[in-house]
Amino acid sequence: MIEFKNVSLKYPNGHQGLKNINLKINDGEFVVIVGMSGAGKSSLIRSINRMVTPTEGKILVDDQDIITFNEKKLRKLRTEVGMIFQSYNLVKRMSVLRNVLAGRLGHTGTIRSMLGLFPQKDIQFALDNLDRVSIHEKAYTRADQLSGGQQQRVSIARVLTQQPKVILADEPVASLDPPTSHKVMKDLKRVSREDNLTTIVNLHFIDMAQEYADRIIGLRDGEVVFDGPIDQVTEKTFEEIYGRPIKEDDLLGGDDD
């Protein structure tokens, strides 16, 4: 379980990223965070693996306050909390398989990993995970040869290879076209269901959020302005979160299936 207790984050430049956040996210939930850009979605998600550090409050992950964690505990936490990025963050010159194996680094000794000596069972596991997002046949292709959607699926495979308990996805489909976005979101939802992973996704398209979320958290100006299960969410809810009427731009569309 992930719990935010009075969490605030003020950046060194004076910008208030988060204001007094109180949240409880249960194991296995698929939560979508919505809000306009600059609303604090990234700050919230990145606080959970301490890519940014809140300046006030407590974040409890499995009852441990991660804000007090030292370097070593932090690395342990990060092996358990996987992350997916908007720009995929693969090493473009490296093969798909090596990129997926990078997910094992937190579990592999420094010298061993620097020499590239991964145990055979890790390699098998990485290939299995590529199979789960249906790009098994691209294992030895260079990452930059893949399309955007394929690259994001590689990064899902990388996260799975990490064997996390939680997946954080920071705008995972913002760089993809609508049909591909839906494919990637379906893959993400499916694997997180199958492995019973807590998944927290930032999205800014409201139709996507409604389609995939179990629960929606709405942020505006660093504050939680809505938090509820998907069946309580209507267009009115989004208008409240965004603080303005819903426009065409807020919808992604493009789900053919």
């Binding site: 693996n49 890519m51 690395r75 342990k76 936490l77 990060r78 092996t79 996987g82 992350m83 990025f85 720009s87 995929y88 963050n89 693969l90 090493v91 473009k92 990078a102 997910g103 680094l105 937190g106 420094t110 990993s113 620097m114 990064s155 990388r158 996260v159 990490q162």
Partner: peptide, 17 residues
């Protein structure tokens, strides 16, 4: 490109990794 570095840090890799 700082992206891959961020990804490895976020997955618990140390500076050598």
């Amino acid at each position: 490109d700082p992206g891959p570095l961020e990804a490895i840090r976020a997955s618990g890799g140390n500076v050598f990794q």
